[in-house]
Each structure stands twice: as C-alpha cells, then as structure tokens.
Design a protein around this nucleic acid. Structure first.
Lengths: 387, 387
DNA sequence: GCTTCTATGTTAGGCACATTAACAAACAAA
DNA sequence: TTTGTTTGTTAATGTGCCTAACATAGAAGC
C-alpha cells in the first residue's frame, strides 16, 4: 500500500476513529463520534482521511427507528491482516484475521507426539502452517502486517540473556516472511492477554493468570499492561525455588517439578490405597474420578488444591492482583476452586479465584490480540519503525 | 490564590514548561525550549501565562560565554508548597518544601519509645509536627497544597478492606488541615520512590526495594509506576506464608516472623558458641562484630544473607525486576551483599543487588516526591478535583 | 401525496495553539 | 566602534478542532 518509511501522517481524531473501528468492529459515525467526543464535521474529516488511504471501507447502511440512515464502516482492506500462531507442545494453532478480528483462515495442527520443549519439530510445523496460510492469500485481505508467535519459552529482547532462553529455536526451521513485523511472546502471557480481553478477566485491568498443568507459569497484567520483567522472567513461578523453609536447602525450579502434573500423578500413584482399584493414569482420569465422587481421588485433588492455594498466596503477597484466573490441565478444573480459594485467602489478602473461560484457545487469541496491537501501532506510526 | 474549582486552564506547552521547572529546578527558556521541542515564541507565551497566575517567578539572569544573557525562572510563589511526613516507629520526620524541592523547614522528632505499630502516640507526634510546621508559615511560601504522610501500614482506597488495615489510626490525634489535599502511602513504597528518583535506582524504571529489618517489606516499581495492588498489599512479602514445603503446614505472615531482626537475634543468641564471648544484643552489634571479623558473627550474617537471597529469588521469579535495592536495618549492610547476590542469582534469574543509597531519609524523600506529584497534578488540573 | 419530525451529513466561519521568518535587544570579543 | 552570538518579540501562517446553520434522506402523520 505504501512503503514502511512513508506511512501517512494522520490527525489525532482519525487515529482515534481507526482505533475504535479496530477494537469495536464495524460502526457508524454517530456511534463513534459521541464515544470519542468528536463533532460531526470532525468525524467527516477523519473518515474521509482514513478512506482515502484505504484504512477504512464503507460496508453498508443501517436504519434506526427514524431519520436518515447511517453509513457503516469497518477497518479497510489497506489496513491489512495478521497471522497469529500458538506454537504449543501438542498442537500448533493458527489464526489469520483482519485487524478487527474477522477470521479469514484458521488451522489446528496436531503434532504427532508431545514435545517437551520448543524444538525443530515445532519450528517445522510453524513454518508449514504459516506458509500454507500465506498461500491462501486473497487480494481483499490487503497486506500481511504482522506475524505473532506464542512460544513456550521465556521471551527476551535481543542483547540481554537471549542465549539463555530457547526462543531462537523457533527460527531453526521457520523464517519470518520479509517485510513483515514479527511479534514473539510467551504463551502464558498470551493466555493472560486473552483472558483479559475476552475471558474471565474482562474489565479487570489488574489480575494474574496462573497455569497449572504439566508446567507452572503465570501471566501478570497490571493496570492493563503485561508485566514482562527485565529478563522476560516475570511470572516464571514454576522456577520458584522450593522448598522454602528453615534448615531446608532450596532448589531452583523445584516448584514446577513438585507442582507439575507429572510429579502429582507420581505422588497419586505412590499413595493410592490398595482397595481403591487401579490408580489413575493421568490428570484427566484423576479429575473425572474425583468428579464421580471417588474418595481416594478427591483426597488428592484436595491436596493439590491446597498446594495451588499456597502458590497463589505467594503471588498475592508479592503483587496483590485481586483476581487470579486458573488455567492449564489441572487449573481449568472447577473441582480445585473451593479449596484453592479458601487456602489462598487464608494465607494472604483478598483474591478472587476463577477458572479460565477460554480453555485451549486462550493462547492463540492472546497472540492474535498482541499482533493486532502491533499492526495498529505500526499503521498509526506511534512506534519505532524497526525495533 | 484561587478556589479549587476554578483552577486556570493552561495550554499544553505551559503545563509542560511548569512540569520541567518543578522537576529540574530553576531554568532558563533556552534550556527548557529545546528540551521540550518548543519554539521561542511558544516559550514566551507559556512563561507569560505561568507568570501571570503566579506559577512561575523570575529569579535572575545567567550569562553564557557569549551573547545576550537569559532570564532564569523557577516554580513561583503561587505554586505553593507541600509538607511530607514519615510517621515511623522510632522517629517522625518532616520536610516542608516548595514543589521544586527547596527545603523551607524540616524536623526529626524522636519518639520516646519504639512503637510496634501505627498508634495514637505516632498520630499525636504527627499532629504536633504538622501544626508546628504550619505555624512557621511565611508569605513567600505561597499556599500549602498537599500534606503527604508515609505510614507503616498497608494503604488502601476507602471502600475496599479499609478496616482491615490500621491506616485510619493516623487520624486518631491528627486532623489534616482543611482545603489541603492529603496523600497517604506505605512507607516502604515511599522508600522505593526515593531510591528511584534520588538513590540506587536512578535510571531504573523497573526495580524492587526490599526492606530487611524489624519488618520485611517490598516496594515495587514497574515501568516507573509504583505497584500497589488491589488491596494495597503488593510487596507485603513479610506476609508470605512460610514454610512452603511438601508436608509442612504454611502459616500466614510467618516469613516476617522468621526473617525479621527479632527472630534473627533470638536464633543468634540461642546458637552462640560458649567460647565466643557474650552474644550480640542487637543487629547493629551483630553487624559490627561481623565486620571486625568475629567468626561466630560472620556465620550468622552469612546464614541470614542466604535467607535474604532466597527471599529475593522468590520475588524475582514472580516479577523479575532486574534490580533489587536492599534497605532496612539489616538490608542496608554491605556485609550481606556477596552471599545474597550469589544465592539470589543461583536460585532465579539475573538480578543486580545493591544497598540503599539514602538510608533513613529514604521514606521522607519518597513521600515528598509523591506529595509534589500530587500538587503538580492538582495545579495542572489533570486529576479528579476531590477523590 | 403532502407535510412534519428526526437523524445524518456538509458547509462556513472562527478560535486555540502551535509554527516559521524576520526583526530587535543585549551581551562578549575583536 | 564594530562584529558575531544569543535571547527575546512581532507578524504572518497553518492545523485541527469547534459551533452554527444548512442540506439530505428517511419514517410517521394527516
């Protein structure tokens, strides 16, 4: 549409209007104007400005109960589209969408085997899926602006301890298409973003998303801003040293090894009463048997809920988020909630604890949101041209 | 100068100029203009605007190596002044200053006995000192804009769990002067603010200040913003439940009871070797004997440093601040640093650990900064008139 | 089928706040 | 005294928004 170094300069009102069209979806001028406190002449000018450069398209008219009908607009072809990818351990999920989230293409690619960490296998799957998505390209989609990828690693800016993370492994088989902005973000942070915008934390600018599954992690949102930390390690609570008690030697990263599902299931199986039948093979079975009322399963679920409550209490004492959204294989289960709430609130300050509302889609939806945000800042020119 | 509901409206440039004069101290137009990217005519208009309403006073001229000399300006009499009070356990410290931090009056009031918590005794001392400061009032100081008080309690907005904190005890003997804005803030948070502006965290928008003394607490600064949390409990790491280990029952608030100086000294005395002379009576003695090289003292300092390192590691795993500034009776000692650094970095992610640069003045300086910020937002009208 | 009422959109005029360009003033150094 | 440098002012201009008034296009009433 135009070269990256010659993005059109827009008036503040036009930028605000575009932002609303992206965030709220198709709207009419009389909807947007009063919302932004802009007069009708200013709205006219803003829309004209945006239409001229292709950021906004007219898509029809709407008729109220009376009076002249209003023209409806949406983010235009020239605004382009983004690709969001969740590079997960078992699935690679992809969404291709416009900035106002019209889904144009999507795929869920199941990996042949579960990957223990970010590796070439995942990178290759991402490369395939991104290439396939780009091949689908249609003219009405406009230019591809951003590719966002959610990674199961810490994400840091180049220059710091980049090499200590595995994040660059994503590029072993995958090369980002040229001329397109790339956004990398930790997958738990992405899930937090999604819960904030579409899930259990709607209208909560401050909260923590805590993932309890094979791995343990937290995505922290304070005042509407994702907290990443100096080394991208904010929320790496799986890495909490543990135990933390007088006389005992703490071990780095032990919290995850103790709280993760693998250790949990090992404990469950070691502890399983002889007269309670075969012990559960995985967390799904443990949870379903607990739900069915099996006492042995219930005991273990309760014990785990207590541990989760203590973990939450630790986070609350540090950042006091007010709301904790639980996700992940174990965390998403409502069975944990009562005990977890009780323990967390007893050990620290008032916290609401809720289950994730988005499940396994949270991560893609989050990286989609981040990719859109980046595309929008690019188009509106309020960010460095090349980071 | 003018009623609260009729503050003059200022142009954006005038507001920016005033903000610079407050933050940078006396300056000339050619200093401020280029800094803000404002042309000379705009600077003229801004200064004229500010002078007319008394926000800015002319204080002299400065001569460069060549050319005409420039007029120097500073925050004016009409901008007024603020009072900052640190309501501490052993001292009440007060500073009365203009918005650009010209110290007009200050007092350090030593309480007859150490207070264990915020109580009427402290409230009475605050009332006395504030009254005395107000009695000193001189016309050239302009109006009193804000009284800020640093409290040794959690501080929450009215309406949440206000009653669970003791913060209202400050009003048992002290009544804020009428027509003046009041700012309350937790004392550890204040110390963090001071370290950020004037101390060890200058140029670190993200860091944590951790106080290790009689009490344990943290002030968290992320991206230049103080993190308070939903219940004003962010950083209440003294309240961390402890121990946190399989099979052990965690107790709320136990971290402080274990890590605080009282428990530390009790452990030292219980453990003191019979052939090492009389055990130390307090932390000051423990530290000075460690500094002198006494092995028994060194062992205990080292052990405590290890515990502090583990505590820092826990905070780093949650928020990854990149820098931790240690303050408080024990924390301010450089003796702890080597071991603390080693343990913290071994157990989590890269953190720099430094000693407080401000000592016991940190808290007053921090609340002074916050009071000034509030006064400035009041004058510039970018805040709700009455919260 | 005409008027009337209502909501949407445009045109004209003006104000607030910044700019650039040119000039005036005040100083040090030659 | 002259020259060059820096500071400050005046005049003219531009941009980005506003309000007021008008034009347009529909539904509803007679």
């Amino acid at each position: 549409m135009f070269p990256a170094d010659a993005r059109p300069s827009l008036t503040a009102s036009a930028r605000a209007v575009f932002r609303r069209l992206v965030l709220d979806g198709p709207s009419t001028r009389p909807q947007i104007g009063p919302l932004l406190g802009l007069s009708r002449p200013t709205m006219s000018a803003a829309i004209a400005e945006l239409e001229r450069i292709g950021y906004v398209d007219e898509i029809g008219v709407v008729q109220g109960t009376m009076g002249r009908r209003a023209v409806k607009y949406r983010a235009g072809r020239g605004a382009g589209h983004i690709i969001a990818v969740d590079a997960g351990a078992t699935h690679v999920r992809l969404r291709l969408a416009t900035l106002d989230r019209r889904l144009l293409h999507s795929r869920v690619h199941r990996l042949p085997t579960r990957q223990l960490m970010l590796n070439e296998e995942i990178s290759a799957a991402v490369a395939d899926e991104v290439a396939a998505a780009i091949a689908e390209r249609q003219d009405e989609w406009g230019p591809l602006r951003v590719v966002g990828i959610a990674l199961p690693t810490r994400v840091v800016d180049k220059g710091l301890d980049w090499d200590a993370t595995r994040q660059n492994v994503i590029f072993s088989r995958f090369s980002p298409p040229g001329g397109v902005d790339l956004v990398l973000e930790n997958n738990v942070n992405c899930a937090a973003v999604a819960e904030r915008f579409y899930g259990a934390a709607k209208d909560w600018p401050t909260f923590a998303y805590i993932q309890i599954g094979l791995k343990i992690g937290m995505g922290l949102m304070l005042g509407g801003e994702l907290v990443r930390g100096r080394n991208g390690a904010a929320g790496e609570i799986g890495h909490l040293s543990f135990p933390f008690a007088p006389g005992l030697l703490p071990v780095a990263g032990e919290a995850e090894r103790y709280m993760g599902t693998e250790a949990l299931i090992a404990r469950v199986r070691a502890d399983w009463p002889a007269d309670a039948g075969a012990p559960p093979l995985d967390t799904r079975e443990l949870l379903s048997r607990a739900e069915a009322g099996e006492p042995a399963a219930l005991v273990h679920v309760d014990r785990h809920a207590t541990d989760v409550g203590a973990l939450i209490a630790a986070c609350v004492s540090v950042v006091d988020p007010g709301l904790v959204v639980l996700g992940g294989g174990m965390g998403a289960s409502p069975l944990l909630l009562p005990k977890t709430r009780e323990v967390a609130n007893r050990l620290s300050y008032p916290v609401e604890v809720e289950n994730s509302a988005l499940g396994s889609d949270a991560t893609v939806l989050g990286i989609e949101r981040l990719a859109i945000d980046r595309a929008m800042s690019f188009l509106l020119g309020d960010d460095p041209i090349t980071p």
